[in-house]
Design a protein around this nucleic acid. Structure first.
Length: 621
RNA sequence: GCGCCCAUAGCUCAGCCGGAUAGAGCAUCAAGCUUCUAACUUGACGGUCGCAGGUUCGAGUCCUGCUGGGCGCACCA
């Protein structure tokens, strides 16, 4: 696909006088109502550099510019320089070409989800997982090699508390008790009940909680020794069902217990060298840590403990080691297959006594790392970044990016997994699908009648699309409020409108095929209405780049909507006589074929845009 | 106390790293299916872009200060 903006830039650069050669040229879409298709405010900048009249400069540039292919003419509009594309040539080029990114030869590791293995996912977890999933797909589409990792914190308190709670309420052989249940909830849900009950009966920092601390500590130690690995794997398998129901898959699970083992963390600490201090007196006596004041502003205590007095590592230390490994400073993990995901792709996991380098898989060695993690984790993320800045020339910190997603409120209230004031993610998914099915029944009863087996599939795609879109469409750093009625809405600024436009086009394409329309398009018959559609299609590469630059998928949501509204507007367009004037199938020969190819290309663009967001587009709905 | 983030239409949000008349959706009102899917479209209504300064030919966008809100500052994760 020809990059018109880039071509225009190049053409303008040739006209820049030496004293203005440093100027950055911006090509923008002309505002609606202004003449031209693309424009630049370059004359303003030149006016300053040359101390001349911008209007004069615009006229001068218009007469001197060597127009790139596909651009019909340039015109000065006041102090702006605008360009008119060649309608037939431009549209034909857009329709007949696909965007495929040039390989970047860079590997990006996207870490997301990382939900504690002690309880089912709740609504809040959906956000991070969807953001991470979309970012992975965006990087891939933009030409990067991507590895999606999910960090399993199997040595933490949360997992220990759940396992302890289960044994407290169901006995030491609780897993057998669970297995023998006739109607059993999924393991993560079942375990979550015990966890919430424990925290209700033993509130944090209460005297009762202190009494059971030693017993919880026993579980923590068992976890650290890897004795409960089998149990935690069962929990993780259960949790992954939620990811799969959302269409999310991973490449690799990395277990904290594997990271903490052997010389892994020790090697990481060696990188700290002299900076790792061992205070012999004061409150930090016996511990080891670093002075963080030069890395992290706003700390009450600049000293950050990395190794506790008892010799164990704090979370950040393990995370730093994990990131050294991600960027390839050292090896040391072993791997095996964890399972096969719905798409058929194998999910790998780090594991004790696994293979060092499984056939055809080279994990880690990333050029960039993107961590989709709750904004509340900014402090540990900064510690990790500080750890990375200690390596080599310090530029490694630049390879680390924390995509800090803000929290999700539930109907305006904050949620707590500990207190159980959350909504399980699985309930949200189920609701989204069933609401979509209800709507489908009332809106398109024919589809329900004629294809009773496909209808629920369509409802599932639509419901999931609506759900995903609400989580992805706003900036990640914005706190969002999950409200059932708006989150699962099927009209307005939703994926549904985009999917609907797609279904409409596919319907036209089916009818065209049935009618045997397959002649040659005559591009000279199309006009501005068609050109407008082509211009929207042509934006895709720059939107993708924007998502990569800002590390956020939300511009792609806006773009998908733009594609849909552009098509819907075209589809419903009426001429001066009030009659529809954009029909594809009823247009004269030649124009008909051109329109058919154009709208089919719009459908492709929609699938492309929704695809990187992890959203499917149904053939009919 | 220190640090990070947010503030744009009644509500929920975009605004592409300084450019042309600040855009959507929801809500309210009106209009369009004997053309291909009306889960759509068109129009109306709705804005001192939190406040006050500053930089600039030009500021919702950059800088400073303030106000209000969210979050963070453990030998928890």
């Amino acid at each position: 696909m020809q990059d018109f903006k880039q071509d225009l830039k190049t053409a303008l650069e040739k006209l820049l006088p030496p004293e203005a050669s440093h100027l950055e040229i911006v090509i923008q879409d002309t505002p609606s109502g202004k003449p031209g298709d693309y424009g630049t405010p370059l004359p303003f900048l030149l006016a300053k550099a040359l101390r001349a009249n911008p209007v004069q400069i615009a006229t001068d540039l218009a007469s001197r510019i060597e127009l790139p292919k596909g651009v019909a003419r340039a015109e000065a509009v006041g102090p702006y320089l605008n360009f008119f594309v060649d309608i037939a040539g431009f549209t034909q080029d857009v329709v007949n070409s696909r965007y495929s990114a040039t390989p970047k030869n860079q590997k990006v590791i996207v870490e997301h989800t990382s939900v504690n293995p002690n309880k089912e996912w709740h609504v809040g977890h959906i956000r991070g997982a969807l953001l991470g999933d979309a970012m992975g797909k965006i990087y891939r589409a933009a030409g990067y090699t991507v590895e999606v990792q999910n960090y399993i914190d199997d040595t933490g308190r949360q997992a220990a508390e759940s396992i302890y709670a289960a044994s407290r309420y169901h006995g030491a052989n609780w897993l057998e008790v669970y297995e023998e249940l006739t109607e059993k909830p999924r393991l993560d849900h079942w375990l979550g009940e015990s966890y919430v009950r424990l925290n209700k009966e033993f509130p944090e920092k209460s005297a009762q909680k202190l009494e059971i601390e030693p017993e919880i500590a026993l579980v923590v130690h068992a976890l650290e020794r890897g004795e409960l690995r089998g149990i935690v794997e069962k929990i993780v398998h259960a949790q992954l069902e939620t990811a799969y129901s959302l269409g999310i898959e991973y490449d690799l699970l990395v277990w904290e217990s594997d990271v903490v083992k052997e010389g892994f963390v020790k090697t990481a600490l060696e990188i700290f060298g002299d900076r790792l201090q061992s205070p012999t007196e004061g409150k930090y006596a016996g511990a080891k840590g670093v002075d963080m004041s030069s890395f992290v502003p706003g700390l009450e205590e600049p000293f950050k403990v990395l190794v506790r007095g008892n010799g164990t590592f704090v979370y950040e230390t393990k995370d730093i080691a994990y990131h050294y490994w991600k960027l390839g400073f050292f090896e040391g993990l072993e791997y095996r297959e964890f399972g096969v995901q719905p798409s058929g792709k194998v999910l790998w996991t780090s594991a004790p006594n696994g293979e060092h380098e499984p056939e055809g898989h080279k994990f880690a060695h990333a050029d960039q790392v993107v961590n989709v993690i709750d904004a509340r984790q900014q402090f540990p993320q900064m510690v990790v970044k500080a750890g990375l800045s200690l390596v080599s020339d310090g530029t490694y910190a630049l390879k680390h990016h924390h995509l800090a997603n803000e929290t999700v409120l539930l109907e305006g209230e904050t949620m707590s997994g500990r207190k159980g004031t959350t909504v399980p993610a699985d309930d949200v998914v189920t609701q989204a699908k069933s609401r979509a099915l209800e709507t489908l029944k009332s809106i398109n009863p024919d589809l329900m009648m004629q294809k009773p087996l496909e209808a629920p599939v369509v409802a599932s795609v639509v419901g999931l699309g609506a759900l995903k879109f609400t989580f992805l469409k706003s900036e990640p750093k914005r706190q969002i409020d999950f409200r059932w009625d708006t989150a699962l809405a099927l009209q307005g600024d939703t994926a549904v409108v985009v999917q609907y436009a797609h279904a409409r086009i596919r319907s036209i394409a089916r009818k065209a095929k049935d009618a045997g329309i397959n002649g040659a398009p005559d591009w000279n018959q199309i006009g501005n209405l068609e050109l407008d559609l082509a211009k929207v299609i042509a934006k895709y590469p720059s939107v993708l780049e924007l998502c990569v630059r800002d590390v956020t998928p939300h511009p792609m949501c806006a773009y998908a909507l733009e594609l849909a509204t552009a098509f819907n507007g075209y589809y419903n367009h009426k001429g001066t006589d009030g009659k529809p004037d954009t029909s594809v199938l009823h247009a004269p020969e030649g124009l008909r074929e051109a329109r058919l190819e154009l709208v089919t290309r719009v459908a492709d663009a929609i699938r492309e845009a929704l695809g990187v967001l992890g959203i499917d587009a149904p053939e009919e709905m």
